[in-house]
């Protein structure tokens, strides 16, 4: 009986939990960024700002939905949904504890990477449908950038796959019970750095957030969205980055392995994902952004060859260790 009901309940539970975490991760980022800037973040709403995300959500729901007259209505209206759905979908394959997940596919990593690159369609729909030159410029930049950085993202995510020998996410996590992949002699650290850089770039986070550069393109592809549609886009962005943080924690930091009893596993997973997220946030609030042609040059001329070489080196090392009987 349970086997029939669980696949129905699990997605709903996971979806709600994920949305809750995503909403509160915005608060975490705001407080963390504020402390780095010698100020305190949200403070008045609730005790030290704990109710701030709820206040934001309520405000966005109550806002007027302004649709430009000349916007391409079907494209404009569907874009936030097309953007949000893949970002939520990636949580389907993540196992939060051994055996606790919605759908622990055999090709978990492949599914994750493939689905997470589909948000670019929603992004471009938003830019085109807004009938706004700023949005169009930003959407063109976004397509360039996300496509360029998906390749290093894939390659750096494949390094733990090669080390563990399986595409299944829970297998990769189990293979780290001895040594987390980040502590692998040289390959682990370099792969982690490459993963972080390509994640930050593939999700349009600073210093690669050229497509929503507030100072040039005034919110880029989001410029014509208000109210709940804007909330959906924000939700999608933060869900994507949270998903990538979870993936990074799983691929490199050993997911649920940590001291203490078994049921603490998901808590450790959450903590590690938050650490990856804070690292990404720390990078975001420390650097100015670079131009789009420089971003593309960095990807094609530096990051892609580097991750390719690193993948080859990992494969060589794994085969050599297998042959040497280690």
């Amino acid at each position: 009986m349970l086997e029939l009901v669980t696949p129905l309940i699990a997605p709903i539970v996971v979806l709600h939990v994920v949305i809750g975490i995503v909403t509160y991760v915005t608060l975490l980022e705001r407080k963390f960024a504020a402390r780095m800037q010698s100020r305190i973040g949200p403070y008045r709403v609730g005790y030290h700002g704990v109710l701030q995300p709820i206040a934001d959500a309520v405000k966005l729901m109550m806002k007027e939905d302004v649709v430009p007259t000349a916007a391409d209505k079907p494209v404009y209206n569907l874009a936030p949904i097309v953007f949000l759905v893949p970002c939520m979908f990636i949580f389907a394959t993540l196992p939060f504890a051994p055996g606790l997940g919605v759908a622990d596919l055999n090709i978990g990593v492949l599914f994750f990477l493939a689905v997470s690159s589909m948000e670019i369609v929603g992004l471009f729909m938003a830019g085109w449908g807004s009938n706004n030159k700023y949005a169009l410029l930003s959407a063109m930049r976004a397509v360039n950038q996300v496509i360029s950085y998906d390749l290093p993202f894939v390659f750096s995510a494949l390094i733990p796959v090669v080390l563990a020998g399986s595409l299944k996410l829970s297998d990769i996590a189990a293979a780290q019970s001895g040594l987390w992949f980040i502590f692998y002699p040289v390959i682990g650290q370099l792969a982690f750095i490459a993963f972080i850089v390509s994640t930050v770039a593939a999700e349009n986070r600073a210093p690669f957030d050229i497509l929503e550069a507030e100072s040039e393109l005034v919110a880029g592809f989001r410029v014509e969205y208000s109210g709940m549609k804007f909330a959906l886009i924000q939700l999608g962005e933060y869900a994507h980055i949270l998903g990538a943080s979870f993936l990074g924690a799983l691929l490199f930091l050993g997911a649920w392995s940590g001291p203490g009893p078994e049921w603490l596993g998901p808590i450790w997973f959450l903590i590690k994902a938050m650490l990856v997220f804070l690292l990404v946030t720390w990078v975001r609030w420390s650097f100015v952004r670079i131009r789009v042609d420089q971003i593309l040059a960095l990807s094609w001329k530096a990051l892609l060859p580097a991750t390719l070489l690193l993948l080859l080196a990992t494969a060589v090392v794994v085969v050599w260790r297998a042959n040497a009987g280690l």
């Binding site: 402390r35 800037q37 010698s38 100020r39 720390w282 990078v283 420390s286 650097f287």
Partner: peptide
């Protein structure tokens, strides 16, 4: 070095 500067400010008292 830039990231260390931001991290240092994390531990300074806010000026608010």
């Amino acid at each position: 070095s830039a990231m260390r500067m931001t991290a240092m400010n994390l531990f300074r008292k806010p000026v608010t």
